[in-house]
Amino acid sequence: MSDVVEMHLKLLFDLDNLIADTEEPSYKKMGFQLEEEASLVLVRKRNELLQQLPKEIAQIYEILKKRYRQAIAPVESEFCLGCFQKLPTELITRSQDITTCPNCGRILYWRKK
């Protein structure tokens, strides 16, 4: 995955979580300003980001988002934080392509140290 694609994917993921949080009842109660029209703009932005991704990655992302709400899972000490399964060693030396968890299928994300 190129750096540009990776950044797009991360931006999309953060944005989707932002949109999801604004729909939480406990969040709404806190009293922060939330403009309805602006949230439509954010949805449009996330769709634009999605379209900028390579088609196959965009498709995987959308399928996973529907299934799990969060399509990406960070990896922490060799565990997928989506399903908490230990990842096989051969995955740890990751390839250039997008890597998904062999157990739950989420897109794996290794944080830069």
Binding site: L11, L15, L18, L34, E35, A38, S39
Partner: peptide, 13 residues
């Protein structure tokens, strides 16, 4: 990434 997401939150209000 964080700045971008925070500023998108600010767009909501």
């Amino acid at each position: 990434l964080i700045v971008s997401t925070l500023l998108k939150r600010e767009e909501l209000g």
